[in-house]
Structures are given as structure tokens and as C-alpha cells.
Amino acid sequence: MQDLRELQERIALIKDEITGGIESLANSKAVYDFKKNFLDPKAGKISELMKSMKDIPAESKAEFGKSVNELKNWALGRFEEIDEQLKAKEAKLRYESEKIDVTMPAKHIMTGYLHPVTQVKNQLIDIFASMGFSVYEGTETETDYYNFTALNTPNDHPARDMQDTFYLSPGFLLRTQTSAGQIHVMEHQQPPIKILSPGKVFRADDDATHSPMFTQMEGLVVDKGITLCDLKGMLEVLCKRMFGENATTRLRPSYFPFTEPSVEVDVSCFECGGKGCRLCKGTGWIEILGAGIVNRKVLENCNIDPDVYSGLAFGIGVERLTMLKYGINNIKMLYESDLRVLEQIND
């Protein structure tokens, strides 16, 4: 390399060579290989130019160096540019090659569900737990005393006819009501008492609308000054949280041996809002539970002074509520373990 003019020619040549060659490069690999021809530290054409610096007279060195550096930077820019273009193109091609039909079915993720009755049970527990109720689960087998006698239903009581009881021995039976749990709790605890007692109960009834086993949830509050108004207020909260803010309740007289007064509680039909439809049989109301003020004798049986304390109790048929809530029309469906049923309700 003799002078700067020759250098400029060489630079122009290299630029032409790069500009000419770069267009035909197909991929990053080709860019890399092509780039090597110019910038490989050992044999690259630009690198060689750099090396020839030593032969340049001192006064020209600065300009020479500047020109070669400019060339180098220009070339690097060009290679980077083309490399980016090619990468973008490659990426696009890859994406295109991976095109799928988004409407094809999803990969199945196996999920199980809690039984609808468990779901409603949990919802009820949540509601009452927030009111300060604790949960007591008694046993499915009971003695005659806890299931009947202590609940003001002695042996000759006509209410025994209301329930067909399964007996396991003269003294033991399958509980017909979770109310039996009331007594166990009250025997061991003085007021204030707020318990919820969910569980399976049994009655010798088996037809289209009755199942010999079903789930009940008993609630009990014993404290000072508990009244029928409290019962109505509490159950109104239950209905609003279970069936929505527009739900209202209605009490009507009924009879249970362990409460006095006793009431049936109806909720305004959540299907028609009370206008009357098939669900509520045109009445605008749906019966959901039985309740009342705890009979003084029951408190006495548990050594709680009925002149100091009073209580309210209610019993909810969980299957009935479940069926109403989800529109299940046959109680038997809940016990057949049909996955087509079980996998439907996820509330």
C-alpha cells in the first residue's frame, strides 16, 4: 500500500464487493461466512488493510487509520443490518410453519368436583360460620334418648309417627334428624351456644321424592333473649346470601316436638320472584326449612335454665336446597354417582 489514493480504491472495491455480495445471502450462517471474508482477524480483507498500516508513512497514518475504521464500521453496520433482516425473515417463516387450527379441541385436564350436596353444605357452613356458628358433627348412629326422648319426643309421642325410624337394636337407631346433635352440645356447654350440625340422617322412606338417607343441617342458638324475630332475621340473612338480595322469607305455623312455637320457613320463589311458576307451584313461595323457638323441656333436659336462656333452632334439608339451587329434579340422581351429574356442578 503506497498511498492514500490506492487505499481509497481498495476501500471502494471492498465496499462494492460487500454491497454486491450481501444481497444474495440467504441466512445468518451465510452472513457469518461472508462476513469472515472481510473481518476475520487473520485473513479478512479489512483486517489485512488494518495490518498494512505499518507500511504507511507516518504523516498519512492518521488519515489511513480513520478511513479503514470508517470502512470497518460501515461493513459491520451492513452485516448487522442484513443479519437482522434475515433473522426477522427466518422468524416469520418459523411462525408461519407452526400455524395451527385454534379451534381444534383443548388438551383434557382431568378435574374432579365436590359433590353438589357438599358444595351446598360448604356454602351454608360459610354463611353461618360468619355469624359465629361452630360446626358439630355427631354420629349417624344414635340412641333413642338423644334422637327422641331428649328432644321432647317420648315413646308415646305422636310425632314418632312422623318419622319412620330405622332401628339397629332396641336402644340404638339411625338418627332421623341432626337435632340429636343439639343435645350432645348442650350437655357439655352452657350458653352462649351457636352451633351448626350437618350430617346424614335416615328415614324409612324410599320413593320418587324421598331417599332413605339424606343430609340435614341443624342450627341452634341459645342465649339470653332469643326471639322469633331473631329467627326470622337470621334466616332472612341466610336466604339473601343463598338466593340473592331480593329474596324474602315467610314464616308459617307448623309443629316439631322440640320447638315451640314451630314454623315452616318459605323463601320467595327465586325462579319467578314470587309471581307464581312451576317451581313454586304457583304459590310464589318455596318451603326450605323448619324452625322454631327451642322447647323449654329440651333446655331443661340439658340442664340449661329456660327462665334465663332461650334458643332458636332450624333444620335445613340440604338435598332439597341443592336440588332447588341447581334445578336437579330427582333426589336419586344425587346418590347414583353418575359422573355426567357430578361433573356438572362447580359452584
Partner: peptide, 26 residues
């Protein structure tokens, strides 16, 4: 009395005289 007077006259209240209790599952 109340069955003749009318259960609709029962006014909802929310355990005004009862003590606060801690609840929930064990």
C-alpha cells in the same frame, strides 16, 4: 297468639341480645 295474629307481623332482628361467638370449622 301469633298464628292468629299473623306471622307476617314478626319483624326480623339479628340476635340483638346474643353474645358474639367465634365460629367456623375445627
Amino acid at each position: 297468639i301469633i298464628r292468629m295474629y299473623g306471622y307476617d307481623k314478626v319483624v326480623p332482628t339479628f340476635l340483638e341480645t346474643a353474645k358474639v361467638t367465634s365460629g367456623g370449622t375445627n
